[in-house]
Each structure stands twice: as C-alpha cells, then as structure tokens.
C-alpha cells in the first residue's frame, strides 16, 4: 500500500505539472499574450515576477496531480460498495482540488462560480455511479447466465 502511494504520488507530480503547464500555455496563447503567464494577470500580480508566479503554480499543479493520482487508488478498493467508493472519491477530490484551484487563480471566489463548479462535480460523480452500477449489474447478469448453463 505504501509502495502504491509513493508510485501514485510521483505519477501525480509528473502528470500534474505537465497538464498544468500545457493548459497554461494554451490559455496564454488563446489570450493573445506576448509572453507566457502561468495563470491570470491578477494571480501573477501577487508575485514580484513571473518566475516566482510560475514556481508557485507548478507547486500547486503538482499537488493537484497528487490529489487525483492518489485519489484514484480509492477505485481499487473493490470491497467497498460502489456508493461508498464514489462518495469518498468525490469528497477527496472536491476538498483536495478546490482549495488548490482557488489558490492557482482558476476561480474567482464567488458563490455563482463555486456553485456551478460544485454542480458539475456532482453531476460527473452521479454519472460515474450510474455507469459503475450498470457495469456491475451486467457482470452479475452474465454470471447468472453462466450459472444456469452449468
């Protein structure tokens, strides 16, 4: 388990920084900026230069990566019910990711933005729950079919 945790932590850091960098690069291009910016101008303005802003962003991307990579281990605990697995995963990623995303300057701190984000999060997890249930039911049905054929 500790080994799995360490591996996922490294995977999280690498993929988090990579995805964060690519996304910020895309947003910099889309905004028609002349030079690269790790996040919004408001975010960068908090720092005394774009280097320290980028370093801080990279740190946050790494932490976000860790949240999702380590969080994915929850889906390997197959002794848990699908409901428990989904709810715990939602809680871990929501409370792990949201503060980091706010710190990274991805959301303005207002009720509408946060509410919208929360609703999308919940809808995605309902979809995960329903899909997992359909897969499990199909699996059970095929097992019953094989039982009858015996």
């Amino acid at each position: 388990m500790i080994k799995k945790f360490s591996i996922q932590t490294i995977v999280g850091i690498v993929s988090g920084v990579f995805i964060g960098f690519v996304l910020s690069l895309i947003f910099s291009l889309l905004n028609g900026a002349v030079s690269y910016s790790p996040s919004t101008p408001k975010f960068v303005a908090q720092f005394n230069g774009s280097l320290s802003a980028t370093v801080f962003s990279a740190l946050l991307w790494a932490l976000m990566g860790i949240v999702f990579a380590v969080g994915s281990l929850i889906f390997t605990i197959t002794d848990w019910s699908i409901a428990k697995m989904t709810i715990v995963h939602l809680a871990v990623t929501y409370f792990g990711f949201l503060p980091l995303a706010i710190l990274a300057g991805w959301f303005p701190l207002n009720f509408v933005e946060l509410g919208g984000f929360t609703i999308i999060f919940i809808v995605v997890y309902i979809a995960i729950y329903i899909t997992s249930m359909i897969v499990a039911r199909k699996e059970a049905e095929s097992l019953n079919q094989k039982l009858r054929e015996r």
Binding site: I82, A83, L147
Partner: peptide
Amino acid sequence: EFEVSPTG
C-alpha cells in the same frame, strides 16, 4: 444467484 445491491 448473483445480485447487485442498490448501493453497489
């Protein structure tokens, strides 16, 4: 029989 409970 195999069955899936509502909580999965």
